[in-house]
Nucleic acid binder design. Structure first.
Lengths: 181, 181
DNA sequence: AATTACATGTAACGGGTTACATGATTAC
DNA sequence: GTAATCATGTAACCCGTTACATGTAATT
């Protein structure tokens, strides 16, 4: 649901054409966020209509580049990004969205993520405790059947995920709080 | 795209009504797989039409339970689950789908996941190497700006995710290979 | 000359989400 | 008797996906 914002942030990092955006979403960005070129063109059209982005009009850099349309973010688009980062509450399962917010914070000054992170950390700790409780309740027995071992493995996947994320988040914390935010 | 299979597997674990399924998807299952009651009823309808599931007809357990419809998986539904587990190739980003496959494996015998896991492990290792390469190339400098530190943090999130998953996967490996598969 | 890469779009479909709707049963 | 829970559904919308479509520029 935040594809337009993903595009806005990518454009803040570097003004691009739809085609370039598609390539960027296939490479680096695509590791944690996907968007096909159809989505990109669709959203670019909408965002032009909304006044968030505009096509860069340069007096024909070279005659060949006529077809290429480079988009840049307008003030209203930038404001929309700030609003979205500040007002969109995330849950424990929206980690890639939080990474998107981090990218926004990396491009345009501090956006108050230092206040959202602790809440996410608390949520992750809570969920981890839930998992630990299930672990002790359901998998404390000495001998488990194959099926039970597999179900235990599924639970462990969840435990690993939370623990690993918490480690990362604690490491990130000072970066968001220190400085000036 | 595998909501119907998620429902089938849940029904294999325990025949349930649509309402019960919705509650199960809100609780335990919902930690890594979501489905609203609208989706559940829609899919149940389709799967009845496809001959994958059927309503359990018991001669009125008690007169009050008239409205409740309990579904069970028919042989064709079970075969469809097996087919899906065996034939659906997963990518690095389909980890929750792999957990779903594991749940299927836990309910109905070994389904050949011992062959899919190594491929996923290789993919994860490859991606981890890509991340490590980016790390050395872009973030080797001694002093990084705030923005660069944040971008580095985003990359580290990816590194953590791969490492953590690989640890888990290696732990799981013998369970899928040992025994009889 | 032919193929690949560049570059931008339209159209249709299906699934997930949200809102709406209804009625029975249980608990306070 | 009123509210919460149980229980099942319909309808509309939007987004992501897949397929289709077109044309230019660069490469071999």
């Amino acid at each position: 649901m935040s594809t337009p914002h993903a595009i806005l942030i990518a454009l803040l990092e570097k003004p691009s054409s739809g085609y370039d955006l598609a390539r960027r979403f296939d490479r680096a960005i695509g590791y944690f966020w996907q968007a096909t070129h159809q989505q990109i063109y669709r959203e670019l059209g909408r965002m032009v209509a909304a006044g968030w982005v505009a096509v860069v009009e340069e007096g024909a850099t070279d005659a060949a580049a006529t077809r290429k349309k480079v988009y840049r973010v307008l003030p209203m688009g930038r404001e929309e990004v700030e609003r979205w980062v500040r007002e969109t509450q995330l849950g424990v399962d929206d980690r890639n969205v939080f990474l998107l917010k981090l990218r926004a914070d990396a491009v345009i000054g501090p956006l108050g993520l230092g206040e959202e992170l602790p809440r996410l950390i608390d949520d992750a700790r809570e969920r981890l405790e839930t998992y630990r409780a299930i672990e002790q309740r359901d998998f404390g027995a000495p001998a488990l059947t194959r099926g039970q071992q597999l179900q235990y493995a599924i639970l462990k996947a969840g435990i690993h995920t939370q623990e690993s994320w918490l480690e990362w988040a604690e490491e990130l914390r000072p970066l968001l709080n220190g400085g000036d935010a």
